Computed example of a mutant assay.
Amino acid sequence: MKISVFCSANENIDKDFFKMTEELGAWIVQNGHSIVFGGCNCGLMECIGKSVHEAGGMTIGVIPQIIEKGGKVSNSVDVNIACDNLSDRKELMLAKSDIVIALPGGIGTLDEIFTVAASNTIGYHKKIVILYNMKGFYDSLIALLNDMQSRGMIRGQWTDYIRVANNISEIENIIKSI
């Protein structure tokens, strides 16, 4: 299985997120999966790429030209897919993957999560996003989604498109159930 991983490219974040990301990378390789990621050499993006690559797994980096020009490409990228911009990156990452896992991240990660979920709601694909809720990182987003659901702003159930996992065991169970 090819797993797209959306996540932060920032370094100055909770150090536990790096440890948990390394553990996820090891699990991915142990289970014979590969990753599709942003290919950047910063933050959790570098961490997931490096952990998968060093454990012998395949890493596919979908890398916008601006990242290449800025010298921010991870040395852990096995396959480099160049793209023009962030919109292309999202489209290519989705096309190259079977499922998406969102680690803690910022505005870009939220954009990626909701692009995948929104395109699922109208039938472009049936891929889901798993929010890896490390240390409750996504609790406020989950509360917002529940509030939007209760106000009738979401067709169906948001959990049809976005699932929540608090640990790797829960990620594994979600993947097995789809």
Rank of each mutant, 00 (worst) to 15 (best):
D88W: 06
I122C: 07
V100I: 12
S76N: 15
C83Q: 04
L145W: 01
S119G: 03
Q65P: 06
G105N: 04
E68N: 06
I67G: 01
G123Y: 05
F114D: 04
M93E: 11
F137N: 00
V79N: 07
I142Y: 10
A117F: 04
G108V: 10
G123V: 09
N146Y: 05
D98M: 04
K72I: 10
S74I: 11
F114H: 02
W158I: 12
L131V: 08
I154P: 00
S74E: 06
L103F: 08
M134C: 10
D98W: 04
R155N: 14
I81V: 15
L131I: 09
D139F: 08
E68V: 14
G123C: 07
D78A: 10
G152A: 10
A117P: 07
I128K: 15
K126F: 05
L94M: 12
I67R: 01
Y138W: 15
E112R: 01
K135G: 06
A143W: 02
N85K: 04
D139I: 09
M148I: 02
M134R: 01
I130N: 01
D147Q: 13
Q149W: 10
C83S: 09
K96T: 07
A82G: 11
A82D: 03
S97D: 08
Y132C: 06
I66R: 05
K69N: 14
I122L: 12
F137E: 03
I154K: 00
A95V: 04
S87F: 11
S76R: 00
A117W: 02
Y138M: 08
A82V: 08
Q157L: 13
G105K: 02
S87D: 11
I66G: 00
M153W: 14
L86S: 02
G106I: 08
D139K: 11
H125A: 08
